[in-house]
């Protein structure tokens, strides 16, 4: 709360920078939620599949990495946005 009251005292460029920093933090945090859940779910299911059918483990692993790559891209775009507006 103190931080917000401090924010209110800022002016001009300082305020802009502070807003950018906080919104960058929010942006990255929000962007990480979905992919985090997605990757967890994906890897968990893949491990289940590999445990059930160890002979198909190679194929499952390849597909798992592909899925991780696609899911992770969303979080990474969030990270780039964080870099763009925050730093």
């Amino acid at each position: 709360m103190e931080a917000f009251s401090m924010l209110a005292q800022l002016t001009g460029d300082e305020e802009k920078a502070a807003q950018a920093a906080s919104s960058a933090g929010f942006a990255y945090g929000l962007a990480a939620i979905g992919p985090g859940i997605g990757i967890g779910y994906l890897v968990g299911k893949s491990v289940e599949a590999m445990a059930r059918q160890p002979e198909a483990a190679g194929m499952v692993r390849t597909t798992m990495f592909l899925g991780i790559a696609f899911t992770e891209a969303l979080a990474l775009i969030g990270f780039v946005v964080f870099i763009l507006i925050g730093l």
């Binding site: 790559a69 696609f70 992770e72 891209a73 990474l76 775009i77 990270f79 780039v80 870099i83």
Partner: peptide, 13 residues
């Protein structure tokens, strides 16, 4: 775009 950002952002992070 995602190909670029995936590699770039991972290494940058």
């Amino acid at each position: 775009f995602s190909l670029t950002v995936r590699l770039f952002a991972n290494m940058l992070a």
